[in-house]
Amino acid sequence: MSVKQISVFLENKSGRLAAVARLLASRGINIRALSIADTSDFGILRLIVDRPEEAYRALKEEGFTVSLTDVLAVAVPDRPGGLAPALEALSEANLNIEYLYAFVARHADQALVLLKVDDRERAVKVLEEAGFKVPSPEEIYSL
């Protein structure tokens, strides 16, 4: 149930993010979600797109340092207190979250949280047992 996330190494200088966005645009690839983790010198851009393999190849050909990373998506209710129980379930199961970011889905009253955890398979089980829906990769790409 892993979602393919594109991770791109970017230096902290102007125009780098735009270059990625422009490249994906030119290939008709749609960005579903993104986040940036940064330090003073560099950043890691993380993207969920509709066609990850294609985006990966395009970025690689263009000379970016890029990798495909398996992340986990979980749907939580889009209301106060929607996220907390999901995180608590993971915490109680001693699962570490490396990072996460979220976006609100357009049509349903739910938010989608993307997580990088140390043990993905167990996390899926824990979340499902706690009553959360773990959407399939296809559902995420086609949102």
Partner: peptide, 15 residues
């Protein structure tokens, strides 16, 4: 230069 062989998806890893 960060090549794919040394790239990590986590800031901590790169630091």
């Amino acid at each position: 230069e960060v090549s794919e062989s040394i790239f990590r998806d986590e800031v901590r890893g790169l630091e």
